[in-house]
Design a protein around this nucleic acid. Structure first.
Lengths: 200, 200
DNA sequence: GCGTAATCTAATCAACT
DNA sequence: AGTTGATTAGCCCATTACGC
DNA sequence: GCGTAATCTAATCAACA
DNA sequence: TGTTGATTAGCCCATTACGC
């Protein structure tokens, strides 16, 4: 993948979070918890985080990856937890009804102001920038990361596709492309507007 | 004349500009100018405005209405301005190559800030509000009016359609409606965003 | 070149006669 | 009710043409 | 109810063994 | 090179659900 060949990176520090290394003991605990319930709620994740001395967001990521990669061999044993298998399984009637999730975070105006400014500057902040922002506004870094994810999704900000000389499959979905073009146009308008507002 | 000495309406001010009444002499001059050239440039309109003691924007409106309503009998005479040899109008009349237009107005950030605030408050300001804004930022009222027109067009702000229970013609253009729906949604997002930015 | 002010048409609104 | 100045939209977002 | 934080999946990237 | 944590998009814009 082509990193953006932006002329001057200056302060980009687009590094990612350093890879977490779990010990055998930690993994044992995680796997056990996973087998009991692959969809732990916030309380459970928090408890696990405390138990193995890491951050709750790492637990979250670990469970996501585990679900994606080891969902095949589940049912090791139905476990006595007869009914709590709450993945969106076969039975439609079995609604999710997951465990309780993390309480919704509320952002103040000034916090949003800071985040928005950073977002306009770079919608893809690296770990350092995120930590910086988190400290600056007094919000856990994991929330900052989630906020950026949501906002990118919300405003359809996407990393620059390289030209992709292979135009073989470009033929279909011309309408889709046209629609995207329109959206992109509006995005540009929006950002121009924002810049002006902030500058004013 | 056009200058309204109307009693102050305090704050309602969704009123429109008071109707201008041209005298016979004024009309004679205007009609003569119109017959010579139904598309006067800024200089000509300014000269006329001075001559009949009114504002250039009223001249503009008068010519627009006249063109729309008396276009039948034009070309009374081709005018001696034979130099219309720009010849871009290879096929049709001399539609192109109008006279020089008004110089483009530049707005400062603070002026834009004021206008934007007013726009968010009400995209359809009446004459009083426009005059107020004009005085506040030191810009002719006619420019303020044009700015609002352009911005409404730009952001697709439309006056609320009354329910229009007659859904007879709703059948066609379903795609169009869908598209509009999407646009409206984005507009709402934008304005929410703006409000937040300003509040922050 | 792009952003956007200026300009235009067709239609409608609305004040005045 | 007709005339005419004022206002508005402009339907994958009116068109044109300048200033920066 | 709406706005939007939280959550999820599938895919990909990338560090490390 | 495989494993696995980290990151990302989510294609008329992922889904869910909770706070205000």
């Amino acid at each position: 993948m082509a990193q953006d060949n932006s002329p001057n990176k200056t302060i980009t520090m687009n590094q990612r979070r350093s890879r977490t290394k779990f010990t055998e003991d930690q993994l044992k605990i995680l796997i056990k918890a996973f087998d009991q319930n692959p969809y732990p709620g916030y309380a459970t994740k928090q408890r696990l985080a405390l138990e193995i001395n890491t951050d709750e967001s790492r637990i979250q990521i670990w469970f996501q990856n585990r679900r994606a990669r080891h969902q095949c061999q589940k049912k090791s044993e139905p476990d006595e937890d007869l009914e709590s298998s709450q993945d969106q399984d076969h039975s439609e009637e079995e609604i999710q009804s997951r465990e309780e999730r993390r309480c919704r975070t509320s952002y103040t105006s000034s916090q949003l102001h800071t985040l928005i400014g950073a977002f306009m500057n770079n919608p893809y902040p690296g770990i350092d920038t995120r930590e910086q922002l988190a400290k600056e506004i007094g919000i856990p870094e994991s929330r900052v990361q989630i906020w950026f994810q949501n906002w990118r999704s919300r405003f359809h900000v996407q990393r620059k596709r390289e030209p992709d000389d292979q135009d073989s499959e470009q033929r279909q979905d011309q309408e889709q492309d046209l629609w995207d073009e329109r959206v992109q146009e509006r995005e540009r308008e929006m950002f121009t507007f924002f810049a002006k507002l902030i500058g004013a």
